[in-house]
Every structure is written in structure tokens, then in C-alpha cells.
């Protein structure tokens, strides 16, 4: 009975305050979309880092079947060449710059590739043979990349030496900048949302002051009096959060999945399903925002 009564009160409140409720929904929608966009950029950065990014700095790719580099004139790398390279890496001249190194076989490469590009159709057309084996090197000082490059580029069996960080870091700094901007916009919009929710709840409490006055007099508990107002704000915020989650999903599905991944097939993009991981966080954030701001407003404007 009481639950039904509270639900009825919420329904009445939402209807009576419709235009304000719609504006709360829109403002939370926009602010949470920006929060989500920042989250999505971070997910995308993680996706692009792949298996090796945080573990090593330099990759020495070995010659494969169709390698055309100068060092690969003699065909794919042989076991002997591979052993020579390993010995060279362990020699004191090189070892002083190296923390650690790992060998990635073609099969390992294929496994990591499949993980990183799991959202992309390219994964079906790639076989382990097409991927080069490599030595992945964790440098004591990443700045000394040049030394490794000079030592190994000319070795037989080496296709190329790449400083992965240099390739990706510029892109990541752009993306991090973009997430920062998104977070700042989200912050401003969140302040907007909090103020708007507070105003809405205040109006709602004012327009129902007769009812709340009577409820107080006949001894309704604080919960029964306040809950409809709080839930009003929370419901509006949850709808806004759901819209924001939907928007993020649509961006991942249509923009990243259908458009960008075709333009840049060699880049790993996040999947639409991954953006849905952000949804509970957005809904939770919306609930917390709306709940606290309406609770604080009610403490000032609704005497119990």
C-alpha cells in the first residue's frame, strides 16, 4: 500500500513538473555523455596499447615469408640467426641497456593479435604465418632506443626495429587531451545538472507543500514524505544516464565499428559491447548526483 502510494506520488510529481523533468533528463544526458566519452577514449587507448605496450618499449621484428627489407634478402629468419640475435641481446654490450627481453613466436603473435583485434573483421583473414616473430625488449632507459636500433637493424634476419612508444605516444597524448576536455565539459555540465535538479526538487516541493504539510500533521514518516521527491530526481537522472549510454553505444557501433574501422583496418577499436561496461557507472553516477542534490535540497526546503 505504502509503496503503491509512493509510486503514485512520484507519477503525479513527474507529470506536474514535466518540463523541468525533461530539462533534468537532458542536462544529465549531456553531462554523462561527456563523462562517458572520456571513459571511451581511455578504453580506446587501452585497446590500442595491445599486449606489449606497457611491458616493453622496443620490438625487433624478424624476417617472415614475404619480408622485403634489406636484411631479409636471404629469406625468413633461420633458427641460427635467431640464436645469434639472442646471444647478442645477452652480450654485455647490449645487456647493460636492457632490463629484460622476451621472444614472441609467430603463434604468440597471432594470439595477441587476435585479442587486440577481436572486434575487427581483419582477424579472420590473418594467419600465424603472416605475422612476424619478434624480440620484445624492456629498456632500462627508453631514451637509449637508438643504440638498440643501430645494433640490430643491420643484423641478418632482422626486418625492422621499432620503438613502439614513439609511434603511439603522440596519438595517445592527443586522445588524453581530448579526454581531459571531455572531463572538463562534463564537470561544468554536472554542476548544471546538480543545480537544475535542486531547483526542480524545490519547485516540486513547493507545488506540493499542501500535501506534505498534511502528511507531516498526520504523522507520515520522513521516508514517505521525502522519498517521492528524491526518486523523482533519481528517475530523471537514470533516464538521462540511459540516453547517454545509448549514445555511446551508437557512437561505438556506427562511427567506430562501421566507419572508422573500415578507414583504418590496422587499428584496434573498442567494441560497442565494451562501451556498455560504462553504462552501470554512468547510471550509478546519475543516481548519486540526483540523490545527493535532492536530499540536500529537501533538507532545506521541506520541513519534516
Amino acid at each position: 500500500m505504502r509503496l503503491q502510494f509512493i509510486l503514485g506520488e512520484i507519477g503525479g510529481g513527474l507529470r506536474r513538473n514535466l518540463s523541468m523533468v525533461v530539462s533534468v533528463i537532458l542536462v544529465t544526458f549531456v553531462s554523462l555523455t561527456f563523462v562517458g566519452a572520456a571513459g571511451m577514449l581511455q578504453l580506446q587507448i587501452n585497446q590500442m596499447k595491445g599486449y606489449w605496450y606497457d611491458k616493453v618499449q622496443v620490438a625487433i621484428f624478424l624476417c617472415g615469408e614475404g619480408s622485403t627489407a634489406a636484411g631479409c634478402a636471404s629469406g625468413p629468419v633461420t633458427a641460427e640467426q635467431q640464436d645469434n640475435l639472442r646471444t647478442l641481446l645477452e652480450s654485455p654490450a647490449v645487456a647493460q641497456y636492457v632490463n629484460d627481453f622476451q621472444f614472441e613466436s609467430k603463434d604468440d603473435a597471432y594470439k595477441h593479435f587476435k585479442e587486440q583485434f577481436s572486434n575487427s573483421p581483419i582477424v579472420d583473414s590473418v594467419t600465424p604465418d603472416q605475422l612476424p616473430a619478434s624480440f620484445r625488449i624492456n629498456m632500462k632507459d627508453p631514451e637509449k632506443y637508438q643504440i638498440i636500433s643501430e645494433t640490430f637493424s643491420s643484423q641478418p634476419g632482422v626486418e625492422t626495429v621499432i620503438d613502439q612508444r614513439q609511434v603511439l605516444e603522440r596519438l595517445f597524448s592527443v586522445m588524453n587531451g581530448a579526454s581531459l576536455v571531455a572531463v572538463i565539459i562534463a564537470g561544468v555540465m554536472t554542476v548544471c545538472a546538480i543545480l537544475l535538479i535542486a531547483t526542480t526538487i524545490r519547485l516540486s516541493a513547493f507545488s506540493r507543500r499542501r500535501e506534505t504539510g498534511i502528511m507531516r500533521l498526520v504523522g507520515a514518516s520522513k521516508t514517505v514524505i521525502q522519498l517521492p521527491f528524491i526518486l523523482e530526481g533519481v528517475i530523471a537522472a537514470v533516464i538521462g544516464a540511459a540516453l547517454a549510454s545509448g549514445t555511446l553505444w551508437a557512437v561505438a557501433h556506427f562511427f567506430l565499428g562501421e566507419y572508422l574501422s573500415k578507414q583504418y583496418p590496422d587499428t584496434a577499436f573498442i567494441s560497442p559491447a565494451q562501451t556498455l561496461l560504462l553504462a552501470p557507472a554512468l547510471v550509478g553516477l546519475g543516481v548519486v548526483l540526483a540523490g545527493t542534490s535532492s536530499l540536500l535540497t529537501l533538507r532545506r526546503y521541506l520541513r519534516v
Binding site: M1, R2, F5, I214, V218, G219, A220, S221, V224, I225
Partner: peptide
């Protein structure tokens, strides 16, 4: 209304 808000049954 006075009974609803204190949770009396219908």
C-alpha cells in the same frame, strides 16, 4: 490520504 501516508491497507 491521512491513512495512506501512514501505510494503512486499502
Amino acid at each position: 490520504f491521512a491513512m495512506q501516508v501512514i501505510g494503512k491497507s486499502r
